[in-house]
Amino acid sequence: MISWRAIAAATLLAAAPALVAGEIPSDARRSGYTFMGPDTRAMQDDDTANPGMLFVLDGEALWAKKTGSAEKACADCHGDARGSMKGVAARYPAFDKALARPVTLDQRINLCRANHQQASPLPYESRDLLALSAFVAHQSRGVAITAGDDPELKPFLAQGRDLFMQREGQLNLACTNCHDDNFDRRLAGAPITQAQPTGYPLYRLEWQTLGSLERRLRSCMSGVRAQAYDYGAPELVALELYLMSRARGLPMETPAVRP
């Protein structure tokens, strides 16, 4: 006879979305915000004190500015971003059919510049690209993250997960060693968070500026004395995709503030 326990266990196994050992269950996922002190939280919460909002305002101006030889502004095609861009950042990186691979929000913006505005790409971490992506992602503030749902993303998600689990660098540490196994502890003075990418691009006090998720990932890689991947490298996109899907359900915070 099959006991109710066995049935319950079997149902759980069948129904639970594949949660792999060591991963953080959805009800235990916490934004980096919850690890910060009250002053930094207050800075993020108050739009007049949040330095990231200056970039959002710059982005709003760029949104309406005609650019490139097509003489078109983002607004000419997408209209009022408050409606057209709401929720978009919460499902990026997204699969691009033409390229047959996922693209990040930064890459999507540059694709629109190339294909629709006939303008040159904005360099990674340039003020204009950060401003545009902050403005677009800000329209998703409060929206739950859903990135990674598209079945075509499966192999790229798997690649991102493998990279997260892979030890690397002279210090031979993997992302998972710090961000799955040791969050809530301190690396020297710094609290280690779960590495939830809820707030990007975000204002980091240590950087004294806004920065992308890729910048953050590259600095964690240099921290373990590994060769950081170049901006836009498929590996960074895959990691970004994995991190976003790992943060499923958490609300977007762009522009967040972090210490």
Partner: peptide, 19 residues
């Protein structure tokens, strides 16, 4: 263990150029 091996230089992945 997460403690690095301080006197070893093989079996490591993507070690930064300077290291």
């Amino acid at each position: 263990t997460i403690m690095p091996s301080y006197y070893r230089n093989d079996g490591l992945v993507r070690v930064g150029r300077n290291f």
